[in-house]
Design a protein around this nucleic acid. Structure first.
Length: 296
DNA sequence: AGCCAGGCTGACG
DNA sequence: CGTCAGCATGGC
């Protein structure tokens, strides 16, 4: 506890930050634009390029100019007490196996439109390919931002994506998702307010997102968890499905209602716990998970 | 080479 | 409520 912030001409330095594995968090598949470099991870958030690095309990965010420290603190979720959440998870015999693999994962607060488009792209896709598509999209129509001798690209505005043709979107490798992306961008460019979903009840916000073509329950929950502050949104993809089956149901297939019941019993931070489970599941792999059943 | 991926949709029972 | 094919694309 007791996080402290110091701002210099071109960096924000946060001390007293515990439970934060920056590289793991940035590269685990919740966000798609961070790249590992010698000094940490480099990326662009809300149009601002940065090189972030951890050292002990310190997080340093190097920017091109005076940083917006509050923006970065919010992005990296530094105001949340992860030690308490990790402790809770460690004390749950079904979940403690997720450590140490999951230790230090934090759930970032991404820009909502970026999350909307990124997770539409993510459906029935793999993380490496999603990252490539998102990067090509930024190169195609995002604003160039010079940083440390190279040119990075901001995530595009809704207007600039809406201007692309379906053929142009397909050429980026988006496949059948191209019309979904275009329609979502058009809707936001046309004034749809994603921010209002922050203040809605989870069920209501989820139903709202599902009115977008190409967004079902899983993608909706990703957007809600990773960009709209709904820490109890619980995206269930193939990995989480396998892991929940192994950890909570002794390897047996669970009915959907039972699964949702187990999820809601995890409480208001279930979405963050979901991310621990996801990390664990991907580390173990399919066969690892199936052999981990019934092992407490 | 063929299965799979941070799934959704529509059809069908 | 549950299942199932089809969907583009390329990583592995």
């Amino acid at each position: 506890m007791g996080m402290d912030i110091r701002i210099t001409e071109n960096a924000a330095v946060f001390t007293g930050v515990s439970c934060f594995d920056l590289n793991k968090s940035a590269l685990c598949g919740q966000a798609f634009r961070w790249r590992e470099t010698a000094g940490g991870v480099i990326g662009v958030v809300r149009g601002t390029p940065a090189l972030a690095a951890r050292d002990g309990d310190t997080l340093k965010v190097n920017c091109a100019g005076v940083p917006d420290a509050k923006m970065w603190a919010n992005y990296f979720d530094l105001y949340r007490d992860y030690a308490r959440i990790e402790k809770e998870v460690m004390n749950d015999p079904r979940l403690s196996v997720c450590f140490p693999e999951a230790h230090g994962i934090r759930v970032f607060n991404q820009e909502p439109f970026e999350a909307l488009i990124s997770f539409i792209i993510s459906q029935n896709n793999n993380i490496k390919r999603i990252s490539g598509i998102v990067e090509r999209l930024c190169l195609k129509c995002g604003s160039p931002v010079p940083f440390m001798g190279e040119t990075l690209y901001a995530f595009p505005t809704a207007e600039s994506i809406a201007r692309l043709t379906e053929d142009e979107l397909t050429a980026l490798g988006t496949g059948y998702r191209a019309p979904f992306i275009k329609k979502a961008a058009e809707r936001v460019a046309d004034g749809y307010d994603l921010e209002k979903l922050k203040d809605m009840e989870l069920d209501e916000a989820r139903a709202e997102l599902k009115t977008f073509p190409g967004i079902g329950p899983k993608v909706a929950d990703c957007i809600l968890l990773f960009s709209l502050g709904h820490s109890d949104a619980f995206p269930i993809d193939v990995w989480i499905d396998r892991a929940m089956k192994a950890l909570f149901f002794e390897g047996n297939a669970a009915k959907k209602a039972e699964l949702y019941e187990a999820v809601s019993a995890l409480g208001e931070y279930s979405g963050i716990i979901q991310q621990y489970i996801f990390q664990y599941a991907r580390k173990l792999g399919r066969e690892g998970l199936s052999s981990a059943e019934n092992r407490t």
